[in-house]
Design a binder for these strands. Structure first.
Lengths: 104, 104
DNA sequence: TGAAATTATGTCGAATATGATATAATCTAA
DNA sequence: TTAGATTATATCATATTCGACATAATTTCA
């Protein structure tokens, strides 16, 4: 992995192992991250379409604006569980969720 | 919710709120749990198909037999993240994973 | 049968995610 | 431009999940 990209990921909080480890875990790790990011995008798109602020969403979810921001940003501290539960709570249509999940 | 069922869920570790909260959260909570369970089943089916023990899977995942058992059992201490990463690590065929995830 | 293998359950310290808060950065209209 | 609104980032205490271990329950098969 090129150094610059690794630095960027590490700065964001992603754990990046050594070259061998990266090569070994890359496929499933990449798929996992891709899945998360697609759900993040789905969440943001859904909010934008409804013309709601992150604060609004936070209220609906019983969370905070900062966490909603992290969800949308794909922060590594955000779990698939939180993303999926949030999308469901926002009444995300099955199709939308499908579309995101299909990008795995 | 009927008392018996609630008792069963609580005994298993599931958080069950009061009636109002239950009614409010039921749909998405149910969908979330169903989603998890479908991934649990996918994991077990995949292991059985490969004729591997939970111990084998634990080694592959760098985890423990007890956690694999909990994954397959749909224990509430198991996250979607762990399930998805496990399925990916086991080389879950794309279609299989999608199918499981799409049961939302 | 019953011993060995496999799976299930309970518990724990450590690791990680959470909502909350503060505040910085960015965007939006006027 | 600039004030107000919105979003991003940093940090924290708390809560939850993790792998590990012990051990119980169940299954397998000779």
């Amino acid at each position: 992995m090129e150094t610059a990209k690794r630095k960027r990921l590490e700065a964001k909080g992603w754990k990046v192992g050594d070259a061998a480890e990266w090569l070994k875990l890359a496929p499933e790790e990449a798929a996992y991250i891709e899945l998360k990011l697609s759900l993040c995008r789905a969440l943001r798109e859904r909010r934008i379409r409804k013309k709601l602020t992150q604060q609004d969403i936070a209220r609906i979810l019983g969370s905070s604006q900062s966490r909603v921001a992290k969800m949308e940003a794909g922060d590594p501290s955000v779990t698939l569980d939180l993303l999926v539960r949030s999308l469901l709570a926002l009444g995300s249509p099955k199709k939308k969720l499908e579309h995101a999940l299909l990008q795995v």
